[in-house]
């Protein structure tokens, strides 16, 4: 693969995805919307796990918080403007990430994993046990947010293809933003911290500040995904914050291949489709009810045998192909 192809490939994929609503039905468009939302969510986590070396097991906190923020900001039977509600939801997530970040970044390794999980659970119990967010029933979002410029409606999110395009645009924006950030001096420093935190400190980098910035950005981006998920489903309940959500997104990052960004997109495709297939009653009949068994075994196999994920597999076969051509 030459340099130019790698440069244009993301645009090509985004372009093809943008054409999708012209050829496909409602069901697959909704499924693909879900994939793209999970891709945003996974990329935000990859920034932490794959590039900063921080394994967070509580990333659902920021995803769910943005969903709840939208639900609580929106008047019950009226539309809220996306122009301010999305930035507000993302801002709340960034703020929460900043505050929790100050605490969790005092820990490392196993501690960090447990503490991030514990803070996500704290949020879960706040929404589950109190009436703030409708308790365990959650809140319905009856009307989708509006996107208007003056009196002109730029997009109608009640239409699934309009919503799909919005999600795709935000996914592309997240990808490009992260690629830019990771290529900057800031991004290089993050990877340096992942590889050798101690040495970075000895070289004069204020490691904590870099990690906190990364943690905050990651939480904010997860907020974009959570906001969109809440819009898509039309309701939020504590499940959106549950640790299964955190486990799923971590699985997507690993399955796709951490530290690659595009791997998160591949992983989201693979994971959402896998869930869809395993729980398909037409194919698996009564066994489909227990699809989580197959999913659990699949997750264990990935952990044991595919640590570099699908992106690693692609790279490997790419190297093999390259080796074969040079052999000739």
């Amino acid at each position: 693969m030459n340099f130019r192809a790698a440069d244009y490939l993301p645009w090509l994929v985004i372009g093809l995805l943008a054409l999708f609503p012209l050829v496909e039905s409602t069901f697959y468009m909704q499924l693909l919307t879900k994939v793209l939302i999970m891709a945003i969510f996974a990329m935000s986590l990859d920034l932490l796990v794959g590039y900063t070396g921080l394994v967070s097991f509580g990333h659902a906190a920021y995803f769910g918080l943005a969903g709840y923020a939208l639900a609580l900001m929106a008047p019950q039977y009226e539309a809220v403007s996306l122009w301010w509600s999305l930035p507000a939801a993302v801002g709340i997530c960034a703020l929460f990430a900043l505050v929790t970040g100050v605490l969790v970044l005092r820990t490392r390794g196993i501690y960090f994993i447990m503490v991030t999980l514990a803070f996500a659970q704290m949020l879960f119990f706040i929404f589950h046990d109190t009436k703030i967010g409708g308790g365990s029933d959650g809140i319905y979002i009856y009307v989708k947010p509006t996107m208007k410029s003056g009196e002109v409606e730029l997009a109608n999110l009640e239409k699934i293809e309009h919503f799909y395009w919005l999600v795709l645009a935000l996914m592309a924006a997240t990808f490009l933003l992260l690629r830019r950030v990771l290529g900057s001096t800031f991004g290089r420093a993050l990877v340096g911290i992942k590889v050798n935190e101690h040495r970075m400190r000895a070289l004069g980098f204020p490691v904590f500040r870099y990690q906190l910035a990364s943690f905050t950005l990651s939480g904010a981006l997860a907020g974009i995904a959570g906001y969109l998920a809440a819009v898509q489903y039309g309701f939020v309940n504590p499940e959106i914050l549950s640790w299964h959500q955190s486990g799923a997104v971590l699985m997507i990052v690993i399955l796709g291949g951490m530290g690659t960004l595009y791997g998160s997109v591949i992983g989201a495709f693979a994971f959402v489709l896998l869930q869809e297939i395993l729980s398909n009653q037409a194919w698996f009949g009564a066994a489909a009810k227990h699809w989580q068994l197959a999913l659990g075994i699949f997750i264990m196999l990935v952990a044991l045998y595919l640590p570099q994920g699908l992106a690693g597999l692609l790279r490997q076969s790419g190297r093999k192909a390259a080796a074969e051509t040079t052999d000739e």
Binding site: L250, L293, M300
Partner: peptide, 24 residues
Amino acid sequence: QRDHLYQVLLTYGLILVFEELRSM
């Protein structure tokens, strides 16, 4: 000898397996 990340993933998968086996 593996990174904690994979321990998290494997044991998370194990939870799903246990829950479904329990259900069955």
